[in-house]
Design a binder for these strands. Structure first.
Length: 308
DNA sequence: TAGGCCATCTGGTCCT
DNA sequence: AGGACCAGATGGCCTA
């Protein structure tokens, strides 16, 4: 049996909203002892050293009345087979490393989106969705100069996310889950109808709140439009379609800081924006604007209130 | 048990 | 020729 050395990578994620612990990596499958016909076909080129072997075998087949239709398939010599197998093994290792790098990048992304938990990690797709919403929301703030309330900001972050992830984000932001639900029969949202100070784990998928739906997916868009001039990311899906970009595409570092996690009734939070190319805008009064040099090293710290 | 998520293998395609 | 990238297939683990 042929096995490859396996190095443990950081992508072995312990938790996500769907499970208590993610499975450990399955053992690398042994390379199949016999390469498939397709594999042989894919490597027909470069058979200098074993050309004679294939020709001789075909002649034997023809003599035996076994002439086949279609392109001639030449069997590979043992040396050629070994070489093909070796290349396949090397390609598999490269592919594993490539995927590990991709997962590491996703881990990095998880740490900068406003919901990071070491015990309940976002899935890949939810990480990407949340990141997209995060960029969108921050871009809207910068482009409009308006300061949305925290609830609307969270709603924007959670658009298109699964219910467990929505609960997780709500928990990270220490908002009660019910804050996401529009009041029945009314346009207004109840911001603090049933406030409880709970952490992400308490409001997560395992909590009792998760037994009832917060909302139907994609069921609301109004509050976003009320606060943002552009359509929300998931109402018209301008980002998904690729036709439009967020209103502002700064080459900067965003960090959102919830200033008062213990008492969010004041709905205070500040946005710290760092950029090389964009100077502070005078229009964005309510937010703390700092140059990259000042705050970039403490970006993790800025996001800490969102992280568990 | 079904569904979600994951890692890995695999073959095809494109690029250098 | 070889590597990077991609997508499909597969099987394992976990939760509802």
């Amino acid at each position: 049996m042929l096995t490859l050395p396996f190095e443990e990578a950081s992508c072995n994620l312990p938790d996500n909203p769907y499970r208590a612990s993610w499975p450990s990596k399955p053992p690398i499958k042994p390379v199949k002892p016999e390469p498939s016909t397709a594999l042989e076909d894919a490597h027909e080129c470069g058979r200098e050293d074993d050309e004679r072997d294939g020709e001789e075998e075909e002649e034997e087949e023809e003599e035996a009345g076994m002439r086949r239709r279609g392109p001639r398939k030449r069997k590979l010599s043992q040396a050629r087979l070994d070489r093909v197998r070796l290349r396949r093994i090397e390609a598999n290792a490269r592919e594993r490393n490539r995927m590990h790098g991709l997962n590491n990048a996703l881990d990095s992304l998880r740490k900068v989106v406003p919901c990071y938990s070491k015990t309940q990690k976002l899935s890949k797709i939810e990480t990407l969705r949340l990141a997209k919403n995060y960029i969108w929301a921050l871009s809207e703030i910068l482009s409009t100069g308006k300061r949305p309330d925290l609830l609307s900001f969270v709603q924007t972050l959670c658009k298109g996310l699964s219910q467990p992830t929505t609960n997780l984000v709500a928990g990270c932001l220490q908002l009660n889950a019910r804050s996401f639900i529009p009041e029945p029969g009314g346009e207004s949202f109840s911001l603090y109808p049933a406030y409880h100070h709970r952490g992400a784990e308490a409001v997560g998928s395992n909590s009792s709140d998760s037994s009832r739906p917060l909302r139907a997916y994609g069921s609301y868009c109004g509050p976003y439009e009320a606060l943002y001039e552009s359509p929300s990311p998931d109402c018209s899906s301008p980002l998904d379609g690729g036709a439009l970009s967020p209103p502002i595409n700064f080459n900067g570092i965003f960090s959102l800081k919830h200033e008062e996690p213990a008492d969010y009734r004041s709905c205070h939070y500040s946005l710290r924006y760092c950029s090389l190319s964009q100077g502070p805008s005078a229009d964005i009064g309510p937010y703390d604007i700092h140059l990259r040099g000042q705050f970039y090293p403490v970006q993790d710290e800025l996001n800490t209130p969102f992280h568990n």
